[in-house]
Design a protein around this nucleic acid. Structure first.
Length: 1042
RNA sequence: GCCGGAGUGGCGGAAUUGGCAGACGCGCGGGAUUCAAAAUCCCGUCUGGGCAACCAGGUGAGGGUUCGAGUCCCUCCUCCGGCACCA
């Protein structure tokens, strides 16, 4: 640190002394511990406020200056709220399970428990050093058995619940909605009573992984009564409905980390969120949480939250609700390789004769589409490589090609499969389906541009009106039929911008058409045939008239001639009885029509997937279940919780090759004694997986309410008092991870009666990222900060090479060596200065660069505040302090400051609140006499920002008690009011002069004052006044002409 | 590609939501104090012209609405964040 402050005078401001003093005082007096309802000392007369920080993962590096940004904000807010008379719950804890500790253990052999404890101690020391007013009695760490006991307990609640989509439910305000979780026992009894049929219980919402589950059972148990099912079948029916369930699903397998990852933990590049290792798809039997059942509520309840709109939007996009239709496409009869049997008429006849929807379920392909209005344009179908029907329908002569394709597609990493090239690949299966709306036979392909994870894993392809299908059809020369007529402007645009597709025309026997078209109008006319040269000219000029006569017929006949496809809304075409309908009307009608014809139904679909909840790791919560030898799984008895992790020394995953089919064995699998449980002569096994990092943070805000409760996760009454969290502050990187998962758990707990609100977090504030300077060499390569040196006046050079460097703003990262630790700043300037600097940097939500150069400005502020009270030379109270009453001007400044700081804290605008402190200081410092009452109030105003300084000055001003619960100063609006204000006088919108006017001067007074001002009369000389606009308290604008 | 957010002095940022652009801080320049320095205090600091009062221009670029635009509308550029073959 270049600028070392020094203390000389005995009474000089010395944060190195006063800060530890007050931190000790707060700890000893438990100043910030807050009582729960029912506890001694609880004050029921006060309103509550629950202010929560996103608790940190205690990494080995300790806090850097980015972490405390949000913590400073909430601390100021909490201190303010206490002074405003609230019971404030402000806890802190540690999200302590997770990969890095385990990685570290593998590298160093130090047990995660040890490193985690050490890191937590470091974090706690750093946080206390910054003077945050947490209630440390409520500290929790998610890796402590007394904590994760209840994480397991919540898991058991999920395991022992099902989601009843028909159930009536209401939120805490009484608003009614459908669908909620219920105990699984209620499903069982309903099945026994026959209140729910087996078929209903088997009806599984798509998107749940169980959909791909026991297909055999599905048809075997279908249409049978509960009493007719075997015990095993019954158990499968029940297990299929649990909100926590086991399923074999394609997962994101990361060999380098030796674990499976959630979709949310895999980046767009197909790399692991943590560590950037490649991730592969492979099927594994996994614990899943049925978050998809909550998709609708997670979506609609966003509207009730005071969250930043961009975060809500990210969640909406992640949930990805869309409306469309499911349509069943029968597989063509006669079987693969056999002669074509069905044509349109034959198919219709058969349907009519049978009065039935075509074929048994096993021989239809169900697709989901958001554009059922384009059904008549479906000219082929595509199955995802993982689709279960691929194998069944593939014709013998295509089998080899299909198998090879499927194999490579499935083993492709996410990276390859979503690579930017997006070149379409695929293989024909040899089989055909019947387009159910017109009976046309259409080929069925397999292609990896269709994803098993979305919709039904199969699509109807409408190349004329879908970009991907269009590309695919062009690649493989599949037929296209236009069924939506685009608006005229589209034709102009398409032809002018991208023209016609030369290659396509060549392949289709229309050689060089676009090339020649552009040459001359006559050539165009010749090529298109049947149109005049004039029309052709019009096409080239992009004139309007030609669309209906020329462009549309070409398009209707073969949309492939155009380079682009039309995916927008228009008017139906080539769609039998639906021709002429707008896309909207068509969509509205077709759902009912499909249903009536037994071909499909309107559906809602979500992108949200069920949550893959197992990790093949040691350092996480173990699953509170027992697997029996028959393959069944039962939840542990709640009384046996917690299930503690076994002692282990080696956490390495069993190595498995990237593309091997061998199952990876998690470290827990090697803890033989722990994992096997003998009971009633049978050998049960615990699960070798653990829960993902997010589990513990899904409910920590509930434990904070009642952290020491030994017999429950939290007491219901206490929860009811504190919840919901009123203000939640943390980084935007959790927009779709933690914030979605926690909402899901909370809703589930609400359904089961363990939580009293449908949402856990009321107001959410996303703190911005603190960045730091970094340096870029002439080639654009980033250079670590310690390799850069400042030359004269703002230019930088490389230490070794001497090359000039550009100073840029970058993320704080170890590799750039631009990490700034708060410890150094606290050592040099004190925590109060650190806090005020972070708050003064800019708006809390904005990203902004740390600049150590700016810190002394806030240190100066702290010193100036100090000197208002203390005489530096003697260490006594400043002789300028008097018992006089403040004059009018000083009172105005004081009350304006009270108002501004209070308003700004409420609005989380701490930067401008500190700006006001500067203004106050600049006003008061020069005064020779400073009324003590005014200074005392100011000390209170400053104290949330600089609490150590505040307490010390408060004490020196003669108060025995901490100021933490002193009433916040009240603003007297009358005293704060300006009597005289400056009015701008404009001529034609340009300020010509300023007048001092009484604050309450009316429009007439303003206008006449403006008109009589000599400068204005001079400027208006020879001009006619057209209009005069007056804005009370602001300005007068005189509009005039020559 | 799609969806968000943001572009204001040398730097961080203000601007009562359509009303005096650049508050406040940093930095820089000048001065006071000091044997000297640190610390502290005072003055100046958007750009161009003028000794000055003052004049002209100015909020990423271009257009528009308005008495008046950093703020609202249209087109475009740049940076940051999210999603990405989602049928």
């Amino acid at each position: 640190m270049s600028e070392q402050p020094r203390q000389q005078a005995p009474g000089a401001y010395n944060p190195g002394v006063i800060e530890p003093k007050w931190q000790k005082y707060w700890a000893e007096h438990k100043t910030f511990s807050v009582a729960n309802p029912g506890d001694p000392g609880f004050d029921a007369g006060k309103p509550k406020h629950y202010v929560l920080d996103m608790f940190p993962y205690p990494s080995g590096a300790g806090l850097h200056v980015g972490h405390p940004l949000g913590y400073c904000a909430t601390d100021i807010f909490c201190r303010y709220k206490r002074m405003k008379g609230f019971n404030v719950l402000h806890p802190m804890g540690f999200d302590a399970f997770g990969l890095p500790a385990e990685q570290h253990a593998i590298e160093t052999g130090v047990h995660p428990v040890v490193t985690t404890k050490e890191n937590i101690n470091t974090y706690r020391t750093q946080l206390q050093m910054l003077g945050f007013s947490y209630d440390w009695d409520r500290e929790v760490a998610t890796c402590d058995p007394p904590y994760y006991r209840w994480t397991l307990w919540i898991f058991l609640q999920m395991f022992n619940s099902w989601f009843d989509e028909q159930a009536d439910a209401q939120d805490e305000t009484g608003r009614a909605y459908k669908g909620r979780a219920r105990p699984i026992a209620e499903l069982q009894s309903a099945l026994e009573r026959g209140a729910i049929g087996v078929d209903d219980a088997l009806h599984l919402v798509r998107g749940g992984a169980a959909d791909a589950g026991p297909r055999g059972l599905k048809s075997a148990a279908r249409s049978r009564k509960w009493s007719e099912l075997t015990e095993q079948e019954r158990r499968k029916v029940i297990d299929n409905q649990r909100l926590a369930y086991l399923a074999e699903v394609p997962v994101n397998w990361c060999p380098a980390l030796g674990t499976v990852l959630a979709n949310e933990e895999v980046t767009a590049d197909g790399l692991s969120d943590r560590g950037n290792h490649p991730v592969f798809r492979r099927p594994l039997r996994q614990w899943m949480l049925r978050i998809t059942k909550y998709a609708e509520r997670l979506l609609t309840d966003l509207d009730t939250l005071a969250w930043p709109e961009p975060i809500k939007l990210m969640q909406r996009n992640w949930i990805g609700r869309s409306e469309g239709a499911d349509v069943d496409f029968p597989i063509a009869t006669g079987g693969p390789g056999e002669p074509v049997v069905g044509d349109e008429q034959a198919w219709r006849d058969r349907r009519a004769a049978d009065g039935l929807p075509s074929q048994p379920e096993e021989f239809t392909i169900r697709v989901y589409t958001t554009r059922p209005d384009t059904l008549f344009g479906a000219t082929y179908m595509v199955l995802a490589p993982e689709h279960p029907l691929v194998n069944k329908i593939t014709a013998d002569e295509q089998r080899e090609a299909v198998t090879a394709y499927v194999k490579t597609a499935i083993h492709k990493s996410e990276l390859d499969r979503t690579a930017d090239t997006k070149e379409k690949t695929g293989v024909f299966t040899g089989a055909y389906a019947i387009n159910p709306v017109n009976g046309k036979r259409i080929p069925i392909w397999v292609a990896d541009y269709v994803l098993m994870g979305y919709g039904t894993g199969a699509i109807m392809a409408v190349p004329a009106h879908d970009e991907r299908d269009f590309e695919f059809a062009k690649e493989f020369d599949l037929p296209m039929v236009a069924v939506v007529q685009p608006p005229e402007s589209w034709f102009h645009d398409a032809i002018q911008r991208v023209g016609l597709d030369a290659d396509y025309c060549k392949r289709q026997g229309k050689p060089n058409l676009p090339e020649q078209m552009t040459k001359s109008a006559t050539a165009t006319a010749g090529i298109l045939g049947g149109i005049t040269a004039q029309d052709a000219r019009a096409i080239l000029d992009g004139d309007t008239g030609w669309v209906r006569q020329v462009a549309l017929p070409i398009y209707a006949q073969d949309p492939g001639i155009f380079v682009e496809t039309f995916c927008g809304e228009g008017t139906a075409l080539n769609s039998a009885g639906f021709d002429g309908l707008s896309t909207g009307e068509f969509k509205a009608r077709i759902a009912a029509w499909l249903q009536e014809k037994g071909l499909g139904r309107g559906t809602v679909n979500y992108k949200l997937r069920d949550w893959i909840f197992s990790r093949q790791k040691y350092w996480g919560e173990p699953f509170p279940v027992l697997h029996d030898p028959d393959g069944g799984t039962m939840g542990m008895d709640e009384r046996d919780l917690p299930l503690e992790l076994p002692e282990m020394e080696d956490f390495k995953p069993t190595p498995v090759a990237d593309d091997s089919d061998a199952l990876p064995e998690p470290p827990l699998g090697r803890a033989r004694e722990w994992i096997t449980v003998e009971r009633e002569g049978k050998t049960f096994r615990h699960d070798a997986n653990t829960m993902p990092q997010w589990a513990g943070s899904c409910w920590y805000y509930l434990r904070f309410c009642d952290p020491a409760n030994p017999s429950e996760g939290w007491n219901k009454d206490v929860e009811k008092y504190w919840m919901p969290v009123d203000v939640y502050v943390g980084g935007a990187e959790h927009a779709v991870l933690h914030l979605m998962y926690a909402r899901f758990w909370h809703k589930l707990l609400y359904d089961l009666g363990h939580a009293s609100t449908i949402e856990p977090f009321g107001k959410l504030i996303n703190q911005g990222m603190i960045q730091a300077f970094a340096y870029r060499d002439p080639r654009g390569v980033m250079v670590p900060t310690d390799k850069a040196v400042e030359c004269d006046s703002g230019t930088f050079k490389h230490v070794d090479t001497g090359e000039p460097l550009n100073q840029v703003i970058a993320k704080i990262s170890k590799s750039l060596k631009n990490v700034v630790r708060p410890d150094d700043v606290v050592t040099d300037f004190g925590a109060d200065t650190f806090r005020m600097y972070e708050m003064f940097m800019g708006p809390i939500e904005a990203s902004k660069p740390w600049n150590t150069r700016d810190v002394p400005g806030l240190y100066r502020l702290a010193n100036k505040i100090w000197r208002l009270v203390v005489d530096e030379a003697s260490g006594e109270l400043s002789p300028a302090l008097t018992d006089d009453q403040p004059d009018e001007a000083l009172n105005r400044m004081l009350h304006k400051t009270i108002r501004k700081i209070g308003q700004d804290i409420e609005a989380f605008k701490f930067n401008t609140a500190i700006g006001q402190m500067f203004a106050f200081i600049n006003c008061v410092t020069p005064l020779e006499k400073r009324p003590r009452s005014v200074i005392e109030m100011f000390v209170l105003l400053v104290s949330p920002f600089a609490p150590h300084l505040g307490e010390e000055l408060w004490q020196r001003l003669g108060h025995d008690e901490s100021l933490a619960y002193q009433p916040w100063p009240e603003c007297d609006a009358e005293l704060a009011r300006d009597k005289e204000i400056e009015i701008a006088v404009q001529i034609n919108g340009k300020v010509r002069t300023r007048l001092s006017m009484p604050a309450d001067a009316d429009d007439d007074a303003l206008e006449s004052a403006a008109r009589s001002d000599p400068r204005i009369t001079a400027a208006l000389e020879g001009k006619t006044i057209r209009k005069v606009i007056t804005v009370k308290g602001r300005l007068v604008n005189i509009v005039c002409g020559k």
